[in-house]
């Protein structure tokens, strides 16, 4: 591989350096004993991890991020799976249009959506920022909820469902005891993608923040802008570790590439 395509191989190595080396530097910096982002780090210590875990803005915004991600992922699936069902199983006029509408949040810039929701729902309509964030994050996850579960729905043979109906099961019973169990890998993938999308989101969470409810990425962004110490490196390493855990869980269950191979599209 290396010897046969020397030009492609050198470009590829360069690509991996740009993607991964900055992350390695964050990891190294998190373990410094010094109090600056100086490189090479001055000694080894875990003091910045202790500082990160006891810094209230980080811990309370982490809780906010988790609450928001879980509730909006559940909402997106609860609202999106029926849509996928209607598109793939029902007799729906204008299927392509409906699917296109539910995928459209992927095309409009997130910052534009954030501004729109801030201006129209918070300022204009008087919703509080948590309610507005729920709307925004749920809508942002619709593409995953509809398309990922839809793709896995397309793989299920409708004859299985027809058989259940033919044997006398109601539409509801057929869905809950036949379709839903078969749909589990798709639901799991969609939930994981949704959760990560919400947890990492900056543009929406930034424009829709309030003093009482801010997400972790927004607090980190603010902190980095004002301070220059390794506490953000430490919290970054903790996030990195959690992300690796999520990737391992994905690999052990549905398969890493199957879940994330089409992310952001």
């Amino acid at each position: 591989m290396r010897t046969r395509h020397p030009i492609a191989a050198s470009l590829a190595v360069l690509g991996y350096i740009v993607m991964l080396v900055p992350i390695l530097f964050v990891v190294v910096t998190a373990f410094t004993a010094g109090s600056t982002l100086r490189f090479p780090p001055e000694g080894f210590s875990l003091r910045w991890f202790e500082a990160a875990l006891t810094y209230t803005p980080f811990t309370s915004s982490l809780v906010s991020s988790l609450i928001l991600a879980v509730i909006s992922a559940v909402l997106a699936l609860a609202l999106g799976v029926p849509v996928a069902l209607a598109i793939h199983r029902g007799r729906l006029p204008g299927k392509a249009l409906v699917e296109g509408l539910f995928l459209s949040p992927l095309i409009v810039p997130e910052l534009v959506v954030g501004l729109a929701l801030y201006q129209q729902l918070m300022v204009g309509f008087g919703l509080d920022n948590f309610q507005t964030l729920l709307f925004g994050h749920t809508v942002l996850m619709f593409p995953y909820a509809v398309r990922v579960t839809g793709a896995s729905l397309a793989l299920i043979d409708p004859a299985v469902e027809d058989a259940a109906r033919g044997l006398g099961a109601s539409a509801g019973r057929t869905f809950f005891s036949i379709t839903l169990p078969l749909l589990r890998p798709g639901l799991f993938s969609a939930a994981l993608l949704s959760f990560i999308t919400s947890f990492n989101n900056v543009p929406l969470s930034l424009l829709l923040q309030s003093r009482d409810f801010r997400t972790l990425p927004v607090v980190m962004l603010d902190y980095v802008q004002q301070n220059y110490d390794p506490i953000v490196a430490a919290i970054s390493v903790l996030i990195l570790a959690a992300t690796v855990l999520v990737a391992v869980i994905a690999e052990r269950t549905v398969g890493f590439a199957r879940v994330f191979g089409g992310i952001n599209r």
């Binding site: 690509g15 991996y16 993607m19 991964l20 080396v21 900055p22 992350i23 530097f25 964050v26 910096t29 982002l37 490189f39 990560i196 947890f199 990492n200 900056v202 990425p217 980190m220 962004l221 980095v224 953000v232 490196a233 970054s236 996030i239 990195l240 992300t243 690796v244 999520v246 990737a247 690999e251 890493f256 590439a257 994330f260 191979g261 992310i263 952001n264």
Partner: peptide, 20 residues
């Protein structure tokens, strides 16, 4: 997998790396 993995990682964390 190594090329896909950064997609899962917060853009704040990844960009912070360049500050370092």
């Amino acid at each position: 997998a190594l090329a896909i993995f950064p997609l899962l990682l917060s853009s704040v964390v990844r960009t912070f790396g360049w500050l370092v």
